[in-house]
């Protein structure tokens, strides 16, 4: 029964992704579908997931990506000092020129993640396809990773939780951050924020495989000038920012 169920879900997921892909962004979506792994196959080290964020297309008042992230991952969406925020909108004003920029900020999925280096139990880890995650079964809640992260990407769950999403287990006393929508990526889909940004008509977030020279994201990174945040630290982040 549940085999059938998961087959059905997968079919619906894939076919809706196909429809969305055909109507919205053929190149990117079809490419991603080609990488959808069969069930039971582990993530591949041939892939390095990443994002290219075009800050010139990111609208300052828009927070569709944040809302989509909260919905996908079952986050309450509060913005208090103890609330979890996996993705946030940052507003920048150039101190010299006054130029204003808006961009989404989240885990940068470093190739050399400081959070993974400092984690005493190995709960912070990097998956072979470049996604940095927390194994909450091992996380003891010491928060050293939060101290070590140069991007302040991580949140600590300060309260007991209820009604979590089945695909996104999360709970009190552990640290969490953007998972690059790993549950969607494993189904061969794009991330919730990228999808929402596209739906809102901005197309500021491009998600894809940095290792594949023919992927949309690789092509674009070759064409346009993009930077990586705090590149001086040499962390080789998976997120690239354009127009900054």
């Amino acid at each position: 029964m549940s085999d059938m169920d998961s087959d059905r879900r997968q079919f619906i997921g894939r076919s809706s992704a196909l429809v969305a892909g055909l109507t919205l962004a053929p190149g990117m979506m079809l490419y991603d579908l080609a990488h959808g792994r069969p069930v039971g196959e582990p993530a591949s080290s041939k892939v390095r997931w990443g994002m290219l964020i075009d800050t010139t297309k990111c609208e300052s008042g828009c927070d569709e990506c944040v809302k989509a992230c909260n919905k996908e991952n079952g986050l309450p969406g509060g913005t208090g000092p103890t609330d979890e925020q996996w993705i946030r909108k940052v507003q920048l004003t150039d101190l010299k020129t006054g130029k204003k920029t808006s961009l989404p900020m989240m885990c940068q999925h470093c190739a050399e993640p400081p959070c993974v280096d400092v984690c005493p139990t190995g709960a912070s880890f990097k998956r072979v396809d470049g996604i940095v995650l927390v194994d909450r079964h091992l996380c003891i809640g010491c928060r050293y990773c939060m101290m070590a992260c140069p991007y302040k990407a991580r949140s600590f769950v300060h309260e007991p939780l209820h009604d979590q999403k089945p695909d996104v287990p999360r709970g009190k006393g552990t640290v969490e951050s953007c998972t690059l929508c790993v549950q969607r990526v494993d189904r061969g889909e794009t991330t919730a924020c990228a999808e929402a940004c596209e739906k809102a008509g901005h197309k500021a977030i491009l998600f894809g495989d940095l290792n594949d020279p023919d992927s949309e994201i690789s092509k674009r990174i070759r064409q346009v000038a993009s930077i990586r945040l705090r590149d001086d630290l040499g962390l080789d982040t998976g997120l690239h920012y354009e127009g900054l």
């Binding site: 039971g40 582990p42 880890f125 790993v182 549950q183 494993d186």
Partner: peptide
């Protein structure tokens, strides 16, 4: 969690 193998025979979700 570590390898991304989902929908396994013994998953809690099941």
């Amino acid at each position: 969690v570590h390898q991304g193998i989902r929908g396994g025979r013994y998953s809690l979700e099941r």
